[in-house]
């Protein structure tokens, strides 16, 4: 039984190269629950909490993208600058768990666990984030869509560490909204991220907690692009809004579980999408 607490990314990569079976722990908010609930018994652990490179964030020189370290705690994503450049991410970060959880949890953890209810994931999906993976032998940059394989399954190889994600800085309204049965500290039973890209006259919609993994509503996006001039704020007609909601609902693949029902989730995610579209077009 070993616990490695490397202080640099290269040490962390060396540790995992040596023992690809080791369990990686970032903030602990998922893994420790599994251990406490007697569902997982790790033998070797590599803790990334002291790898400061993973807690950095930066803006590309040309200002076109922002790169966020996989270990940056959610609490720090409420930072004014991040909130200005990627408001949907800051909004999603604010809804994660409690202040204590936001001090520990991070995008790396959300991606590593890959739960469809992970609050940051719809934002990464809507913004077509690139996930940066590193191993001792190389680096891979893959689209978040390829990274999220299924329910709690992802494309990380055993010897890889999720290092960061890169998001485009887009001109246009973006937002995140979530439904839970409590007014704070609640797991989402439906969530939605909507981002307008004025420059490219595009719109992106991603849904959380209504399918095995995050759902990107590409059909609805394409349809809406044909209906609205996305280069400016529009008046969205009631009929258009309704059809938009119906199309989003069709793309959702929710299930019944102890948290909610499939019917409600479909309704809720469609309602959230309509509200976000309305907000996006409120001058």
């Amino acid at each position: 039984m070993t616990v490695a607490v490397p202080t640099s990314l290269s040490d962390a990569l060396a540790a995992i190269a040596q023992n690809p079976a080791a369990q990686i722990i970032q903030g602990g908010t998922d893994l420790m629950v599994e251990i406490n609930f007697n569902r997982r018994k790790p033998t070797d652990v590599i803790a990334l909490r002291r790898v400061l490179e993973l807690r950095e964030w930066s803006i590309a020189k040309d200002g076109s993208t922002i790169t966020i370290g996989a270990g940056l705690p959610y609490a720090q994503m409420e930072d004014d600058e991040i909130a200005r450049l990627v408001p949907a991410l800051a909004q999603a970060a604010r809804t994660v768990g409690s202040p204590q959880i936001r001090a520990a949890g991070s995008i790396g953890g959300n991606l590593g666990t890959c739960s469809p209810a992970g609050d940051a994931l719809p934002v990464l999906s809507a913004l077509d984030a690139i996930v940066h993976l590193r191993s001792s032998t190389g680096a891979r940059n893959i689209s978040v869509h390829e990274f999220m394989v299924g329910v709690k399954r992802n494309a990380r190889a055993p010897d890889e560490i999720i290092v960061s994600v890169t998001l485009p800085i887009v001109t246009g309204w973006q937002g995140y909204a979530k439904v839970g049965v409590r007014n704070a500290m609640v797991i989402s039973i439906a969530s939605c991220c909507l981002a307008v890209d004025r420059t490219n006259s595009a719109i992106r919609i991603a849904l959380g907690a209504v399918g095995p993994t995050i759902i990107r509503c590409r059909a609805t996006e394409a349809w809406l692009t044909s209906q609205l001039d996305l280069s400016s704020v529009n008046t969205v007609s009631t009929n258009l809004l309704k059809e938009f909601g119906d199309r989003v609902a069709q793309e959702a693949k929710p299930i019944d579980d102890h948290r909610s029902t499939a019917v409600y989730r479909r309704h809720a995610v469609s309602t959230l999408a309509k509200r976000l579209l309305t907000r996006a077009n409120t001058p």
């Binding site: 908010t29 893994l31 609490a75 409690s98 001090a103 520990a104 500290m185």
Partner: peptide, 23 residues
Amino acid sequence: EQGECGSCTVIMDDQAVCSCLVM
């Protein structure tokens, strides 16, 4: 035992965290 109640809150490096979720 899962960070949902805050009873185990401690300060770690100036941050309030749930000690049940810290290995």
